[in-house]
């Protein structure tokens, strides 16, 4: 069975730090960053990027559509 690795790109300036993606992530990839964006929100980021499987759960629950998800097969 093929194995996948994923990655996300967060539009950090438009992230509102609601934390829903962090909770939705099944592999504990995500966390809210210690730093804040221009609006003062602790934006979401990949704390453990190697854990990401590209399942897109984070993007699905994101109310602000700030997450772009990529997924590649490990060859």
């Amino acid at each position: 069975m093929a194995k996948f690795r994923g990655a996300i790109v967060v539009d950090t300036e438009h992230c509102k730090g609601c934390n829903l993606c962090v909770v939705a992530c099944p592999t504990h990839t995500l966390a809210l960053h210690h730093d804040v964006n221009g609006k003062g929100y602790h934006y979401s980021y990949m704390q453990n990027p190697e854990a990401c499987i590209g399942c897109a759960s984070c993007g699905l629950v994101c109310p602000d559509s700030v997450i772009t998800v990529y997924k590649a097969e490990i060859k």
Partner: peptide, 21 residues
């Protein structure tokens, strides 16, 4: 490798909704 991205039909306006709405 793109799996999910913001819909082309969503505008660039920042939603006025509260975080998590």
């Amino acid at each position: 490798n793109l799996v999910l991205k913001k819909s082309r039909l969503l505008t660039d306006n920042v939603m006025h909704y509260c975080p998590g709405c």
